[in-house]
Nucleic acid binder design. Structure first.
Lengths: 194, 194
DNA sequence: TCGCGCATGTAAGTTGTTACATGATTTA
DNA sequence: TAAATCATGTAACAACTTACATGCGCGA
């Protein structure tokens, strides 16, 4: 549902092709709404059918025509309507937390490797968000309301990443602790009774 | 995908019915993996077909039979295998952030009402998580490894909620700021030129 | 007596994923 | 010369949502 309106919102700023929209989703919208290019193209076709966007094909040599999408008046109306309706909170569904819930059954070495990869990812994301903050939102209170609101979306991403990393530290501490307990006094069943 | 393994993990702790599993998902697993009862029943049927769980029907008077699911050896194996494979991070998809991205187009009064409702929700969730923490995980470093890992999943929930609330404060501050700017010097087009 | 909790599902629809497809241009 | 970027899709499948269905017991 919301993909539709994320597309419309992006097209509100400026007319773009599906390709460009995909770039936008993978960068500026990365902490807001994820979508694959397949989904984007499909949804754009639907928006076109519904006349919420119009298309102008711009021919190119060596490449397929660039199809530029413009939001229509009907599109703006639909967007405004959606924006002023309450939306559901997204459900929490994190496979990593399922693993922690399973507890004992995971091999800690495998978990550690996964966590290391995730940490790199989170650090990279944080750096990326920080860079955007620094270049575009350096003096947030002097921005137009429009960009102040967008900045808040970015802030959500930054705060989220910081929390992720703080949580990872707790996890590492606990993991080390478990390790040292296990090696210093192994489970009774693995030993001769004393 | 992961629903399957969340179910198996829950059944690892103790055999349960679909109804009980639904309770577990709505409480202990609320910050881990959300699932509706329909989905749970469907997935349980599939797990049974795959022989990853076995079923014993316990008749009841006045109610449908309670179907108790037990994890099988094959189920444990499948779970262990999944746990030691890397899993994808869940994609970010938040309609609320789409709204902030749209920026200017939202009516701030509608947004404020939505935010107030969300805040109540988050406060309630935080309280709930805190209660669990207090009753089950009061001395975390004295728990078995199994429960120390589960506690980390809960911590993720608590830290997440704290972040949500801190972000909301930023949002409220910015919103007030925008309001006071707009009312003290309205947009030029709404006024006579000076 | 009205609604909630208990207890199990079916069915239709939407949304999102994964795999496949094509082909020129630029960069390492 | 191999891989990445530009540029647009189709098709099959899996996952999730929403609406519907049934029926007893219990408490306000």
């Amino acid at each position: 549902m919301a993909l539709k309106f994320a597309l419309l919102a992006a097209l509100c700023e400026e007319p773009m092709s599906g390709y460009d929209l995909n770039q936008t989703f993978r960068t500026r919208l990365a902490n807001v709404w994820n979508a694959s290019h397949q989904q984007i193209y499909k949804e754009l076709a639907r928006l076109h059918e519904l006349a919420l966007v119009s298309v102008t094909d711009r021919p190119q040599q060596g490449k397929p025509d660039k199809r530029i999408y413009h939001i229509s008046d009907a599109g703006k109306e639909a967007l405004a309507e959606w924006l002023n309706q309450r939306q559901h909170r997204p459900p929490v569904r994190d496979p990593l937390l399922v693993k922690f819930f399973a507890g004992d059954l995971l091999e800690l070495s495998a978990l550690r490797e996964e966590l290391a990869a995730i940490k790199e990812d989170w650090l990279a994301q944080t750096g990326y968000y920080r860079a955007i903050e620094h270049t575009y939102f350096r003096a947030p209170d002097q921005l137009t309301p429009h960009f102040r609101l967008q900045y808040l979306a970015l802030r959500r991403g930054i705060l989220g990443m910081e929390t992720n990393l703080r949580w990872l530290e707790e996890v590492e501490t606990t993991l080390n602790d478990i390790d040292s307990q296990v090696t210093s006094r192994p489970a009774a069943k693995d030993r001769e009774p004393s």
